[in-house]
Amino acid sequence: MTHYEKQSMKELRAGMGEGLVEAGKRNENVVALSADVKGSVKMDGFAKEFPERFIQCGIAEANMVGIAAGLSLCGKVPFLGGFAEFVTGRVYDQIRQVVAYSNKNVKICGSHAGISLGEDGATHQTMEDIALMKALPNMTVLVPADFNQAKAATLAAAEHVGPVYLRLGRSKMPCFLPEGEKFEIGKAQLLSEGKDVTLFACGHLVWEALQAAEALEKEGISAEVINIHTIKPLDVEAIVASARKTRAVVTCEEHLFNGGLGDSVAQTLALHCPTPMEYVAVDDKFGESGTPDEMLTNYHLRAADIVEKVHAVLKRK
């Protein structure tokens, strides 16, 4: 298998922040909006570099979504940033009407997504955001895997015309993908080839999937690892091709079972290539307070949990 080195520990939200500054330099129409969390969502760099293009909306996310939609009419490319729960679930109807249905060029950056947010607890740990955003027609849903990819995804979102949801975590996580690699929206990323089972992963769990593949290799099991950084539009072709090859699938994500990557893959397999499949995800419950490490371990989102699911799916092959 292909081995990946942990280069550093970095926050994905910070990757977005760097990408946004770069996008702002490349395109003077890029503007940013935040709801009193510009530091938390790492938009402070952009605000400092381009103060006239940063709009402080205060603690009013619904209004921020509408303002972003209005700005997009005038040729602006608005990136709005907030905690993922408050820029998706809290404002779902606003996004539905003036971003998705009206098909406006608005980029929604949801930081602090997933259970690895940790200590803030369940009110802030959205694990439903992928389900909400992918349900909307016209919406593109991006879930980058590390800091470097979060930066690249931000640049890709700026160039893409149309609504985008960009999911980002808060905590420092392994950075392992090459710097400066182009992000291709809608294109699954083959990280390691294998023949016995496919691990489809997104976000922070891509690293865990790679660790699982290393452990499986020692057992003589060859796992293919594919990073599904774009949940929508889904790379159906790549998923079907890999499932046909390995005949066993495990999906890995920091999201609820319902409506996440696993459901997108399950739907694809059911329609095109029925294949035994297991989920590594959170089963229909809210999170709680704890360190990011404690959350990932206690909610069974670790490499060891992926290995266990691989053993289970191989028995069904």
């Binding site: 709009i55 509408g66 303002i67 209005g70 700005l71």
Partner: peptide, 11 residues
């Protein structure tokens, strides 16, 4: 609509 109008006005 008021939020949208504000966005367009800022634009």
């Amino acid at each position: 609509g008021l939020s949208v109008g504000i966005g367009a006005a800022l634009g």
